[in-house]
Design a binder for these strands. Structure first.
Lengths: 330, 330
DNA sequence: AATGAAAATGTAATCGATTACATTGATTTT
DNA sequence: AAAATCAATGTAATCGATTACATTTTCATT
């Protein structure tokens, strides 16, 4: 309601002085500062951020684009992002893209229109070309699900190795017919998880069989559907490696409906280690991603790009861990 | 990068004309408009939203404050909010408050600093006084979890009746010792759910016993912990009504650890009908809230306040439904 | 051809802040 | 006492848009 002019008038000083008091940018006498602060309090004045940001061409705000807030995987990452943001005085605003390119572009438009200083993209649907162009204009960092071969900083885990270890675990339990429940998309993370799966099979002398592979969209539903199909195969798989926990849980429920016991008749391994992985019965064997740290690292990286401390692109790879629970071992 | 001045220069017109073309606010000749559009395309120009919003004192943006994006209950509500927002040309930005007043106040500060035209608050931690004051300055709507007795529009279900029906269902199954797993907070919704619980007991001639009541924070963990304690009672409850599905699932897992069968030895009823309620084993009896519609209604209400169509406060109460599944009936 | 109305376009004020530069007044140095 | 220095404060330009008002152009009407 009230502007810096109102404050200046009430305190009997110029707007410059008021601004100095607010920003502590240069020395103001004690008495004057007190008068100004008093006026600010009396008027309940708050600087108009639009004016300030316009003048400073800096918003200290960052957009976080994510495909789906309902996916618990992202919640923990966001926590890390928020903590680091707040440490450096940045605000973050979450943008739910619903994996819809049009929605995503709307938020990217806001980014290009100076509403924020940069963005963290998770599972962006943009083309490589658009992404590259965007990152030339505006500081961005890709987190977790990312597009390959771009000069854009990203933060993730070693997806190939993680998948390799998970599948190796299944092989170690004696399984030979191991299904792969993945996703067919542009994200390097999903490509690498499949590569890890194939490498583990190969090293164990097991032929890769595309019939044992199904593709969905990380969701419970798609895991459920894919497993239904896989169970119709003859001989049917005795184990499955899924690229998300939600898919794994869907797969298990699918098996349960067919009276197939997990893990006795079918061992299932997930990916992510969302909170529900230890709540669900049977508890879920999975690859634990350091979600909180992924978020922290992404935000640290973004801020250093925004503040010009870091111009090159860096690819961060954080540690993961295979967590063995009831869904593979009784 | 480029401004309206650059566009004007390149097109050989004035900034006013460029603005007219962008906003279609008044007639511009075909040729001129074409020249301007060409220049805009060539420069990849986008209006600076800070400048525009400052001038218009309108951002067409709305903040959505929610306690926790990890709670699947909110995800569906947000979808409704987003759909209506997009229908009216508004953008929404999600703000994760983590039920932390300080964080919440930071976002409220942005609101007061003209970064958005209004907000939808879910489970706000602000005091009644602060809320009332805020709503006098800025359009806000409370959704689902709300504070009572304030002249602020809110959208929810009839929580008392919903709880009453759920507990009545348990009573109908023959239960007499029915625990209440709730939350001790300022939200009218949780107070009303308890009142519904008490009314159902009363009508059935069952004495209300505070020993059978536990209080947490809607989370899985708190449900787990509370049920652990309740099971130590002698005689122990044979049923429990929980004010969130996450709590109900925690309670069930707690019982399972003690080798207590659900629903045979203990019937459990949740609240919300989150997606997981039908995935979890046993599937969960619960009160279904029309989350998507709650979101839609809240956003419609907010927009009508922002655009000055509606000045009074309205209290919307949407329909709910008791959904009976395995956790109460075999 | 002169007139007037309507259409197209331009000029400059404005939104609310920040900040370079200018000014004032007090204090120190010589 | 004059000069130099420095602290405190003010004036006005600026960020990038929108828009009221002014001006120019076009064209139908007489």
């Amino acid at each position: 309601m009230s502007t810096i002019d109102d404050v200046a008038q009430r305190a009997g000083v110029s707007v410059a002085t008021v601004s100095r008091v607010i920003n502590g940018s240069s020395r103001v006498s004690h008495e004057t500062a007190a008068k100004v602060r008093q006026a600010i309090a009396e008027l309940d004045y708050r600087p108009n951020l639009l004016g300030r940001n316009l003048r400073r061409t800096k918003s200290e705000r960052v957009l976080v684009l994510l495909p789906n807030i309902a996916n618990p995987f992202y919640a923990e990452i966001v926590k890390g992002i928020e903590d680091i943001a707040s440490k450096y005085g940045y605000s973050i605003m979450l943008c739910n893209t619903d994996s819809d390119l049009e929605r995503e572009m709307k938020y990217v438009g806001m980014l290009k229109s100076y509403l924020a200083d940069g963005a963290i993209l998770m599972a962006s649907e943009m083309t490589n070309e658009n992404l590259a162009e965007l990152s030339r204009e505006i500081p961005i960092v890709q987190c977790c699900e990312y597009k390959a071969g771009l000069p854009i900083t990203h933060v993730s885990i070693d997806n190939e190795m993680a998948a390799y270890k998970a599948v190796n675990h299944l092989i170690g339990l004696g399984h030979r017919r191991i299904a792969f429940i993945g996703a067919r998309n542009q994200f390097l993370s999903s490509v690498l998880r499949k590569e890890g799966y194939i490498r583990a099979l190969k090293e164990a002398g097991i032929d890769f069989d595309p019939a044992y592979c199904g593709y969905g969209d990380y969701s419970y539903k798609s895991g459920f559907r894919i497993m239904k199909q896989l169970l119709n195969l003859d001989p049917r798989p005795t184990a499955a490696f899924c690229i998300s926990d939600l898919m794994a849980i869907g797969a298990i429920r699918s098996a349960m409906e067919e009276n197939i016991r997990v893990p006795e008749d079918l061992a299932v391994c997930g990916f992510d280690n969302i909170y529900f992985a230890r709540v669900f019965k049977p508890t879920l064997t999975t690859v634990s991603q350091p979600m909180y740290d992924l978020g922290c690292t992404a935000m640290e990286a973004l801020i250093s790009i925004i503040e010009g401390k870091n111009t090159g692109t860096t690819h961060y790879s954080l540690e993961h861990e295979l967590i063995i629970r009831e869904s593979t071992v009784k």
